[in-house]
Design a protein around this nucleic acid. Structure first.
Length: 414
DNA sequence: TCTGGGGTCCTAGGACCC
DNA sequence: TCTGGGGTCCTAGGACCC
């Protein structure tokens, strides 16, 4: 019998911010940006949630619901640092650990009873160890499947532990809303409601053939999930497998929509550079480049191009991104731009022989550039076309970050 | 409700090949 | 030539998660 644990940090971003500024404790706090910015809530304190504020809600809406809330920008490096601390603790309990996101993890504690005791005892030990290392609280679910462990930790929130003994899954799940199943979002929920299915128990009553007919492959997986089984969907495979990224991307929403070609091109170049840099950090090459554009009315389009070789070079991304953009742009104002790298391959990408020498020189240059960027921050060095308006403004805001007096002197010519 | 940014997985049509 | 079926790649879109 398997023994899986799901550990989820309580109001993670907010709790980390409270560690750095204890005066925030107990107050309505919203992490994600200023209250009048374009953007959404990343995390809300329990005090803020009482006013109806929740994550993914537009910041301006959060402000209307709770004007007295403290809005903080949020500092990702801090969350990454604490996430690593949590991971280090969990590794002491089992080598089979997987961070499912920055603030949650799965553990396989199968066969550890003699060492750690029964599930509830192990869960308490986990909770205490995390608390000791980070001063942060978490919630823990334990069960014979990852799916049920995850749902259990959600039910245990905040600051709770819930163990579903083998055989108790159906009874535990029966009264919960179908929405509690990971993977069932707004759309699937609506579709299920239309069939008169509201609770997971309703779902478990139906036969798999009906669900497959109505919802395809997904329906079949749903039938299993209603019974607490992992099979089908993301819970396939063992914990700790598959940590190579499948895509790398950056996107950005303009603070004001723009149709200015120079601004748009500069943003495409900047996003391309950020993507390429991350690929080089991961020692990956990409064969498919995709862009995303979103207009003022929120209509969104993607365009992609698969190259005959894999690359990790800024200029190739930028050229492809700009070509894709200008081929499909209607000329109307743009709200968001994104650049994505897919079909990732490890190691050296292939280039044809003629280009090889040029590429190698580029790689050397980029390696030097990455070093400078690593030292002084991402915005100090850029391709000439990336040195345009929105970007340069940021450089001037932080003159103390600059290696020299004139940032443009560090810009690279083509 | 005027709607971020980083991802994963799935579907579906068309091209192309055998 | 009025016409099959499967496999794989490419492209676009969408649901969902944190």
């Amino acid at each position: 019998m398997k023994s899986y644990f799901h550990l989820d940090m309580d109001a993670f971003f907010v709790s980390v911010e409270e560690l750095f500024d204890p005066s925030l404790k107990g107050k309505p706090v919203v992490v994600g940006g200023r209250s009048n910015e374009r953007g959404v809530v990343s995390a809300a304190s329990y005090a803020a949630r009482k006013f109806g504020v929740h994550s993914a809600m537009p910041l301006r809406t959060a402000y209307k619901l709770c004007p007295q809330a403290i809005f903080v920008e949020g500092r990702r490096e801090r969350y990454v640092e604490y996430s690593r601390k949590v991971y280090a603790v969990l590794q002491k309990f089992s080598p089979r650990v997987e961070m499912a996101s920055i603030d949650e993890a799965y553990l396989d504690l199968t066969g550890t009873e003699r060492l750690l005791g029964p599930p509830l005892a192990a869960a308490h030990a986990l909770h205490n160890a995390v608390r000791e290392a980070t001063q942060l609280n978490c919630s823990i679910g334990a069960a014979a499947s990852r799916l049920v462990a995850k749902i259990a930790s959600d039910q245990a929130k905040p600051h709770g532990i819930l163990w579903i003994p083998p055989g108790g899954e159906a009874r535990f799940l029966a009264t919960l809303d179908v929405r509690k199943i990971p993977g069932v979002g707004k759309v699937t929920e609506r579709n299920l409601h239309e069939c008169g299915i509201r609770k997971i128990g309703d779902l478990a009553q139906l036969d798999a053939a009906f669900l497959e007919k109505r919802f395809g492959k997904w329906g079949l997986a749903l039938a299993g999930k209603a019974r607490g089984e992992d099979a089908g969907g993301w819970f396939d495979g063992e914990i700790g497998e598959g940590d190579d990224p499948k895509s790398v991307s950056h996107e950005s929403t303009f603070s004001v929509d723009t149709a200015d070609t120079a601004t748009i091109d500069a943003m495409l170049v900047r996003l391309s550079e950020m993507v390429a840099r991350r690929l080089r950090d991961h020692q990956l090459h990409a064969r498919t480049i995709q862009i995303k554009l979103r207009y003022s009315d929120f209509s969104t389009f993607t365009r992609s191009k698969t190259l005959d070789h894999a690359t990790q070079i800024d200029t190739e991304f930028a050229a492809a991104a700009r070509a894709l953009f200008h081929k499909s742009w209607s000329g109307k104002a743009i709200r968001l731009l994104g650049v994505y790298a897919q079909s990732l391959e490890a190691g050296e990408g292939q280039t044809n022989l003629l280009e090889e020498d040029k590429m190698q020189r580029w790689r050397n240059t980029l390696a030097a550039v990455d070093k400078i960027r690593g030292k002084y921050g991402d915005t100090t060095v850029s391709l000439a076309a990336g040195m345009n308006a929105p970007f340069r403004a940021r450089v001037h805001e932080n003159p103390e970050n600059l290696p020299g007096k004139d940032p443009r002197s560090k810009g690279l010519d083509k």
